[in-house]
Structures are given as C-alpha cells and as structure tokens.
Design a binder for these strands. Structure first.
Lengths: 150, 150
DNA sequence: AATGAAATTAAGTAGCT
DNA sequence: AGCTACTTAATTTCATT
C-alpha cells in the first residue's frame, strides 16, 4: 500500500501525469510534442507509470444525465457514537449502493460524506428511506447540487 | 446543454458505457467479447458516444499521494447573503485554484462544497488563508478525510 | 441504419545503438 | 534517450441484412 518509487518521478513524468489526468486519450506523439521527448519515450514512461501504480486506471467520464440521473446530492452523515461497531457493516453497504458515487469517512462535525446520483426528488426520497434511515445513522443533512463549478 | 439523443441509447450502448466507466482502456475486441457485437461495431458506438458528448472525456486516475498530496479535505462554505454579487467572481477563482479538485454549488445549510487535495495540515492552513479567508465567505467548515470508502 | 469482415491507417511496443 | 522495425489496435471501406 505504501507509495514507493515516488522519488523516481522527474519533471517529464509529472508533466505527462498532469496531461493524462485531463485527457487520457492523448497519443504518444501528442504527448511528445507537449513534453519535449520522443513519442516512444513518452509511451515507455506511461507504461511504467501504469505498472508502478502511479496511474491507477483510466476511466471514461459519462454525463450522468444520460442515464436519467440528473440530480446530485451531497449528504453529510452523523453516526450514533454508541453504534460505532456498526461502522464496518455500514461501510460495506454504502460501497454496494449504486446511487452512491463517492463516499468518504471524515473528521469534524460529521462522520461520512456521500455523493449521491439520482433521477429526481422522488428517487432521492426512496434512497433516503432505503439507505439512510437506520438506527445507527443519527442524522443526515442533504445538500442538493445546483451546479457543478468544477 | 440539453441532453438530446438519450433515447437513442440501446442496451449495447449502456453496456459499453458501464464497461468504459470502469476501464477506459478496453480494446475493441475486449468490448466485443463482453457485449456481443463485433469489435468494429463497438468502436463505432464508442466514437458516436464521444461525438454526442455522452462520454465527456477519458481521464487517468493518478494516486494523489505520488504528488505528495496525501490529505483530502471536504470544505463546506457559507457565503454572506449580502455579497451574492461576488458569486461569479468567487466561482472563477475556485475554478482556477489547483488544490480544489471538485467544487459544487449546493442548496441547504451551506452554499458551496469543495474537495481539496493538499500535502499536509500546513499546506491546508496556507490554502485556507489564501483562498477561504475573504469577506464574502461567511463561514467554512473543514472535514478532513480519514479514509475513502468509495 | 447498422452490422461484420476485410483493408487501411495509426498507435503502441520492443530491440538496437 | 532516440530511431526503427514489429505488433496490435482503431478506423474506414464495402457488401449485406
């Protein structure tokens, strides 16, 4: 789990990573032009970055609205402090719940922050009933996303 | 901005999208095998999904720790209601701030939710001073991420 | 209108200097 | 690292349904 080989990343690697994080479809020659190495050298580096796990994976970003999931809600969960034994169970369930696209355990006034993708309010209400209404969830606060700034 | 062509997505497109959201590096023949079409047909569909904006883009997921950004903080911002004219300005600034990896305008008890990626507490403190301490930000609540569940 | 098979073009990989 | 040859994948063409 530790991050080895980090010291081995030079400026070229960093530039390549920055570019691929924006657009993973850049070809070897496109990278070459932008970073000032040959195409082969760039691709060798990309290969190495993948093998060492620096690049974890490549994913397609799909407009959630095409699936009819036009509504995003950020949910702040507060757990019952006397039910912290249920944390692992809850965690496993949240991981499996398809509406949840992001989920972090946090410190502070809340315990868990969710990002939920649903079709509409009705579907969100159903999600709340199905997933959030449980004894070991003390409180949840829903923040509906009006617009994505970034 | 409207999402047209959604009705035009059949089961093959949906399957392809689901697969590429997990792994955008699947080749035509790998897709072919999984969805039951020829490689050419799959790639033609992928091309169309890109052209119509259903696939917005492909990105490389890079372990943030390799950049030394080992700390994630979710920040809940509350703006001064009498300074809502500054919203566009703030929005533009947040968009440019490199530490912010995600940023949404929300309803509810807060106005904006940020996801911030920094090296450590010191860097986070500097970020707060530089970005969050401004007259039109009334309050901010920092939730440090202890662990990623999803 | 969209498919599969085949041909073409482009990209990625590997070997050598 | 670069260059070049090789291999694999993506794209286009074309005949078919």
């Amino acid at each position: 789990m530790g991050v080895r080989v980090v010291a081995a990343l030079d400026q070229f690697d960093r530039k390549i990573l920055a570019l691929l994080q924006e657009n993973a479809r850049l070809t070897g020659s496109e990278l070459a032009e932008k970073v000032g190495l040959s195409a082969a050298a760039c691709l060798r580096r990309v290969q190495r970055l993948r093998e060492t796990g620096v690049i974890e994976r490549d994913i397609a970003i799909v407009d959630p609205r095409v699936f009819g999931k036009r509504m995003t809600v950020i949910v702040l969960l507060t757990l019952n402090s006397d039910r912290h034994d249920r944390y692992q169970l809850l965690r496993a369930e949240l991981e499996k719940t398809p509406e949840i696209t992001q989920c972090d355990h946090v410190t502070g006034a809340h315990d868990i922050v969710l990002r939920v993708q649903v079709a509409d309010m009705e579907e969100y209400a159903a999600f709340v009933d199905r997933v959030l209404v449980r004894p070991y969830i003390k409180r949840y606060e829903s923040l509906a996303v009006l617009g994505h700034i970034k």
